[in-house]
Every structure is written in C-alpha cells, then in structure tokens.
Design a protein around this nucleic acid. Structure first.
Length: 479
RNA sequence: CGGGGUGUGGCGAAGCUUGGUAUCGCGCUUGGUUCGGGACCAAGAGGCCCCGGGUUCGAAUCCCGGCACUCCGACCA
C-alpha cells in the first residue's frame, strides 16, 4: 500500500527548507527545549532516552574491549591546559573560564573542560611508572563546554554530552592500532545501530585535532547531501607524554614516553540520525535505538474488549523484550498516528473491533508507510522480524543516498560545478599540499572530509596544482 | 563576528504604518457525544505585549540601547 500523503502541517517540508525542517522536527518531536543561555539546550526525555540507547550500545562495546569508565574534574587550571602548545592554541578561542570562588577572585583561573586530555595526562603522570601499568584504557561519559558562536540543536551546542575515550600505550604501534580499532567501533555503531553508512578515513593536517599526530574520522552524508563528522579518533604519539612528563620504565629498565590516543562520540550524532532518516512527517528512528519500537494504538478503545486486547498485546511484546508503548489517552486515533510518526516510532500496531473479530491486528511501518493486517499468532516473531527489516532498509536507503551523490572530479572547476548543481561528496586525487586544500575551499567551496582508507586511483595528478598526486580525498560541504 | 528576519496567554499569529478597552486559531480545564489518518458540542481558565531607558495626558504601537531565537556567511575537530 502506498504511503499516504502528508498529514502534518506544522512542519516545513524537508525539500523546501531543510534547515527549517530540522528545527521544526527537533521541537515538534519533543527532543529539545531552549534554555536561558545561548547554545545550552535542554534534552527532553525522548532525546535523552535516545542518547541512553546509544550509550548502552557504545558502552557495551568499550567494555568488551577492556575499557574502564572514570570521572575526571570539570575544571582545568590554566597552567595545566597550557602545557601542550598546539592543544591550547586549538582550544583557547572557545573555552569558558571560572574566575571567582564565591566572591573571592581565584589565584589562577580555571577553564571549564572543552575536552579532557590534559586531565588524563595529569592523572597518568601520577599513576604510571612501569610497563606493567600499561596500557591504560579509560573512558568517561560527561559533558564538555566550548563557547561556539553559532549554535544549533544537537549539531553545535556550547555544552554537549559525549564520551571521551583516552588510552595510554607502551608503543606507538599499539596506540595506532587502538586509534584504528576505536574508529571501527564508531563505524559499527553508526552503520549497524544508527543505520548511517560512513566513510572511514584520516583527516588532513589542516583538519586534524589540536595536538594530534593523526586524526581518524567517520563521515556521514545527510539527506541534504552535506557531510557530518560523526566520530573521531586521535593518535597523539608521545607529544602529550613529553609535555606532561609521563614516563615509564620498560622491560629493560629504560625510561620511555608512552603513546596516547583519544576518541569521542557526541549527541551531535542525534542530529545526524534526524537529518539522515527524517521525512516530511517528522523523525524516523532506527529500531535498534528507538526509545519506543512499537506504539500500540487502540481504535474505538471504549468498545468492549479493545483496551483489554491492546493491553494483552503490550504485555506480550514487552515479554519478548520489545520496547513497546500503549497509548490509551483520549486523543483520536488520527491524532495519535500523526503524533508517533512525528516521533519516528518504527512500527505502529492498530487494534480495533474489526481486528478482534478476525483475530488480527494492523501493523504500519514508519519508514515506508506499508500497512499489513497480521494474525495475532506469532505476533512477537512478526514484529521483531519487521523491526529488523526496517533497520536494514533504512540503512540501504541512506547508503543509496551516499552512493548516488558521490562523484569523481579531475579539476577544481568540475568540483565546483558538482557542488553548485548537485551537492554531495566529490572524490579527487590530491598532492598533499595545504595550498591546494585551501584553494579547493576558496574556489569550490568545499573542505576535505577525509583521506579514505578505501583508496582509489582516479588519476596521476592533483587537480589543483598538476603535480603528482599522493592520495584520493573526499571533499564536501560540512555541518 | 558580519548581513537579514522574528520576539504579543503554553504554541502559532493579527494588531504597530496613523498611540486611546489586548484580538483570533490551536492547545489547556470541566461535562457530554465520538474513535480504522490530527473528531464535535457546550461552558471556563489563562497576558510585567522580550528587557531597560526616553517622548507623551496616555506606548504592544513612536525613538534610543540591550538581549534572545532563527536563517545566510565567517569561524570552528
């Protein structure tokens, strides 16, 4: 059955004004409320539930790999932040400072953490002495603060929730392997739970993290064909260790500097889910992380047996570990349909007098609107297999969007034309010079998204300078 | 940080040009009828008109200054 036409008129059509559509969805789906401070957003229960589900997925993956959760302080003394030069320079413009304790000015001002590398380093300086103390595989779930000028719900908060993993290793090889391993964890989470296909790769020198030797990234394409960096993983070498004087005695009793990594994944990705899967009726959530996977809507709920039957179905699905909600409020069925579509609930179950007579119920998929009457026998199996199908087809559709909107170019002019007329990702060769990267930004309006692991040979020369090409790069317009 | 737009019950808006009783729709409350795509009837409640100054007998409305939201750009992992 074909998807019925749009009923919700409160939100702007997605293809008319994507930015406005996004803001409308965020508000109408009850994800976000604005607070009194610019860029500090309130995550309402539905958004927080979504974040908790993502947390569960990632936290489980981290723990399987041996990472331990810790909690570091919120405040960083200025002198501590100053220790690693590149790191300070990168973050200084966007940190907020605490200058008073009560009414007394502090002897040294304290920065509200924009990220916690320096705190982990300080701590490791205290506790790491021997090769037996390594590796340290730590993670913390927390919020950080960056004084951004432009803010948008989920995509750019001044305060945002994230996890930051920090690890310390005896050797460079081990640290690099960890950096790559954690990028793969993020990719797994995005692709298999959030149904967001990713491009895995390395950032250019220009785009890498302040203080890092290498930054790995996963890049996603949104429905409007812009790029969203959805997780990053950094290899620091021993730069921080040297700056913070962290050393250990190796097996030969020689003093060594350990090698370090960090990796982060934030609520920004919720913005990514919205912009990857949402449509004109609102959110569309991947079943694996949807706070409610099945919404049961009774029809004519005061007719004999209906509410009871609905409740029985709820109990059955709950028993089968399906996240289910029954809406017995006095709103009309039509109102409820629209409401849960706005909230992106993957599957709707309708049960009314007609169904009772026939021992069936009606299931409607949020992703494609398909409606089917199914027997109540084996309901649990039908529902869980439908949820799997929805998860898969959401991924497939998103993948199709990436594939259809990824192009190859051989000149700067071609890149510009593609970006102006179609948008999306453009793959080109590149010589590796910053000058050419800057020129691409200047003349084609794109930034480098990453140097993908999956390299292709598209030609021998750099489209900017004509010199021999080193690598293939993805370019795009980013959030 | 630059350019545009917007701020009026919970939400969306009208009113502002031309100063004079704050208006409408949705939502909310109560009661009743409904229920397979945002139901209907009736009766109610709810407002420092973003904030601060100024002009005026009188300001939602005019003037000056802030702030917030929003879009576009710059910046930004």
């Amino acid at each position: 059955m074909a998807k019925e036409k749009k009923q919700v008129e409160q939100i702007t059509a997605r293809d008319v004004d994507f930015a406005q559509w996004y803001t409308d969805v965020v508000k109408k789906a009850e994800l976000i409320d604005y607070s009194g401070v610019k860029g500090m957003f309130i995550l309402r229960p539905y958004a927080y539930a979504l974040w908790e589900n993502i947390q569960k997925v990632l936290d489980g993956m981290f723990k399987k790999l041996g990472h331990e959760n810790v909690s570091m302080p919120l405040l960083i003394p200025e002198s501590l932040l100053q220790k690693e030069k590149d790191h300070v320079e990168g973050f200084a413009p966007e940190v907020a400072w605490v200058t008073h304790g009560g009414n007394e000015p502090l002897p040294e001002r304290l920065c509200i953490r924009p990220t916690s590398e320096t705190l982990f380093c300080e701590h490791w300086g205290h506790v790491v002495h021997s090769w037996r103390d390594l590796p340290k595989l730590y993670n913390q779930w927390c919020s950080v603060l960056r004084w951004e000028k432009t803010t948008r719900p989920f995509l750019r908060h001044r305060e945002f929730l994230w996890q930051e993993g920090h690890t310390l290793h005896a050797t460079a090889e081990e640290a690099v392997a960890e950096t790559e391993r954690m990028l793969e964890v993020y990719a797994d989470c995005c692709e298999n739970y959030l149904a967001m296909p990713v491009i895995r790769g390395v950032k250019t020198e220009k785009e890498k993290f302040a203080g890092a030797e290498k930054t790995y990234t996963i890049e996603c394409m949104m429905h409007d064909k812009k790029a969203l960096q959805s997780g990053t993983s950094h290899y620091f070498g021993d730069g921080f260790a040297r700056a913070f004087d962290i050393t250990f005695s190796d097996k030969n009793n020689r003093q060594q500097y350990p090698h370090q990594t960090s990796w982060g994944f934030s609520t920004r990705t919720i913005g990514g889910i919205i912009m990857t899967h949402g449509d004109d009726s609102g959110l569309v959530l991947p079943p694996r992380i949807a706070p409610v996977q099945v919404i049961i809507i009774p029809i004519a709920q005061h007719k004999p047996g209906v509410a009871e039957a609905a409740e029985a179905l709820r109990a059955r699905l709950l028993q089968a570990d399906i996240r289910v909600k029954l809406d017995l409020s006095e709103q009309s069925p039509g109102w409820k349909f629209a409401e849960y579509e706005m909230k992106g609930v993957p599957l709707r179950l309708e049960i009314g007098p007609k169904d009772l007579e026939q021992g069936q119920c009606v299931l409607v998929r949020r992703d494609d609107g398909q409606k089917t009457a199914i027997s109540l026998d084996g309901l649990e199996e039908t529902v869980s297999s439908l949820l799997d199908q929805i998860q898969q087809s959401m991924f497939d559709r998103a993948k199709e969007n990436v594939d259809e909107n990824t192009f190859i170019a051989h000149t700067v002019k071609e890149v510009r034309e593609i970006i102006e007329t179609k948008g999306g990702f453009v793959k080109t060769m590149w010589c590796g010079d910053l000058a050419c990267e800057l020129r691409m930004k200047e003349e084609a309006g794109v930034s480098s998204r990453c140097i993908p692991f999956a390299q292709e040979h598209l030609g021998d020369i750099c489209p900017c300078c004509g010199k021999p090409a080193q690598k293939m790069v993805y370019w795009g317009v980013a959030y």
